[in-house]
């Protein structure tokens, strides 16, 4: 039998009923990202895992150039800025000097798959014991939506206004599959954060990547396919739908290399 609910909003919103709030490892600074950008969610998931594993004092993040360049403003951990694309090289140095710290890099596709290809591939090939978080949105977001190595064929950007022509501009680079072939990588996966279910999966992948680094297993690489609604010229909800329809067939989600 239906009864009127004997509970008011004030009674529900008590500290003992709290089920979710932003982790304290995210600072109070307002995120500089565009509305609907996946970066904020990815930042929060990494910080939640670090919080749950109690690693705040032992974590050093490396953020190079790109939209994530201001990450040190938002992540309440030790951060180091690197030159464009050179985050895996900087992280290598930090990890070799301080092997007990948890060291990660946080890079976009224009950074990791273009100017930083050499550093990325060689860090992966050396099997450096670091974790790379790679945010792939198929475009240079920060500089105004130019074509990136990961831009899909026929995709329109500021520098490919008629769509990416693969005959003159080459093919999109699946760098995650490339580095999965290298013996130095231990765990390679591709996730996304556009729905709650995918956010939960991404968090599990981040957890695994951190655990493998603690066990000194080698390089863990987590790609997160994300949106860039400003660069794609769509609303955030449209961009998520477009990503499902166009990005996921080319960049299929799931684990690419899992430990035996």
């Amino acid at each position: 039998m239906l009864e009127t609910l004997p509970i008011t909003k004030e009674e529900i919103c008590k500290p003992e009923n709290l089920v979710y709030s932003r982790t304290h490892l995210m600072t109070d600074a307002a995120l500089s990202y565009c509305p609907g950008c996946g970066h904020g969610t990815i930042h929060r998931m990494i910080m939640e895992v670090i919080d749950e594993m109690n690693l705040q004092a032992d974590t050093i993040g490396v953020a190079p150039v790109g939209c994530s360049v201001l990450a040190y403003e938002f992540l309440n951990i030790d951060m180091q800025q690197a030159a464009h694309g050179r985050a895996p090289a900087v992280a290598t140095g930090i990890k070799r000097l301080m092997p007990n710290k948890f060291v990660f890099t946080y890079q976009g596709d224009g950074d990791l798959a273009a100017i930083g290809t050499a550093e990325t591939i060689h860090a992966c090939n050396r099997g450096e014991n670091i974790t790379i978080f790679y945010v792939n949105n198929g475009i240079y977001g920060m500089t105004g939506g130019q074509m990136a190595p990961t831009t899909l064929p026929q995709m329109k950007t500021a520098t490919s206004p008629f769509g990416r022509n693969v005959e003159t501009m080459g093919y999109p680079l699946k760098i995650t599959e490339l580095i999965a072939m290298l013996p130095g990588t231990y765990f390679v996966t591709r996730q996304s954060v556009h729905t709650a279910a995918n956010v939960r999966k991404t968090k599990k992948a981040i957890q695994k990547a951190i655990e493998y680094q603690k066990l000194n297993k080698g390089l863990s690489f987590v790609e997160i396919v994300s949106n860039c609604n400003s660069g794609w010229k769509m609303t955030p909800v449209e961009a998520n739908k477009w990503m499902e329809e166009n990005m996921f067939p080319f960049y299929p989600l799931g684990d690419i290399k899992v430990p035996k």
Binding site: I7, N17, L18, V19, R22, M26, G36, T41, V193, A196
Partner: peptide
């Protein structure tokens, strides 16, 4: 409205971490 079940889906996908969720048992 008052249909919220406290499933935290909205808070998980919120890029800015703006949503806090409470859940009470009746």
């Amino acid at each position: 409205n008052e249909d919220c079940t406290g499933c935290i889906n909205c808070a998980l996908v919120c890029p800015d971490g703006a949503i806090t969720v409470y859940r009470a048992r009746l």
